[in-house]
Lab assay of single mutants.
Amino acid sequence: MQIFVKTLTGKTITSEVEPSDTIENVKAKIQDKEGIPPDQQRLIFAGKQLEDGRTLSDYNIQKESTLHLVLR
């Protein structure tokens, strides 16, 4: 499924993921596309910071959901 990751600069990254993918996994995909190390990434969805060990389905993230990427 496709999800969108919006950066603070307003850029939107499209990523191909599975509901069973972990947040860590998603951060790795963002690193592949943007070159941002996962340890600098914080992903936010519905006002919550997403934890690395959890999966997209844990957070009820569905296709075409938009996550927000904040850098630390």
Rank of each mutant, 00 (worst) to 15 (best):
R72H: 11
V26H: 00
V70E: 10
D52I: 04
I44A: 05
T55L: 08
K33G: 06
Q49D: 14
F45P: 00
E34N: 10
E51Q: 10
P19W: 07
G35H: 07
N25R: 14
I30F: 03
D58V: 03
R72D: 10
E16T: 12
A46F: 10
Q62N: 09
T9P: 04
I44Y: 15
V17F: 12
P37M: 07
L43S: 00
N25M: 15
V70M: 11
P38V: 15
V26M: 05
G47S: 04
F45H: 06
Q31D: 05
L56Q: 00
N25I: 14
S57H: 10
L43I: 07
G10C: 07
Q31A: 14
N60S: 09
G53H: 14
K63H: 15
L71Q: 08
K63D: 14
E24G: 13
L67C: 15
G35E: 04
T55K: 10
R54G: 06
Q40G: 05
T66L: 10
S20H: 12
T55H: 05
D52T: 05
K27S: 02
G47M: 04
E51G: 04
V26A: 02
A28I: 13
R42T: 15
V17R: 00
L67G: 00
Q62K: 12
N60W: 04
I30D: 00
D52P: 06
E24A: 15
E18G: 08
I13S: 03
T66Y: 07
L71A: 08
S20F: 11
I61C: 00
P19Y: 07
E34H: 11
V5S: 01
T55D: 02
G35N: 07
T22F: 08
G10P: 01
T12A: 04
K63L: 06
Q41A: 07
I13R: 01
T12G: 03
D32N: 11
D52S: 07
D21C: 05
G35T: 03
E34C: 15
I30M: 03
V26L: 14
T14D: 04
G53S: 11
I23A: 02
N25V: 13
E51V: 08
P38F: 14
L8M: 13
G10E: 03
F45L: 05
L50E: 01
I36C: 04
Q2E: 09
E34V: 15
L43N: 00
E51R: 09
P37Y: 05
K33T: 12
I30K: 00
H68E: 10
P38M: 15
K27H: 02
P38G: 09
F45W: 09
I3G: 01
G53W: 14
L8Q: 13
V70S: 07
P19D: 06
Q49S: 10
D39M: 10
Q40D: 09
K29S: 07
L8A: 13
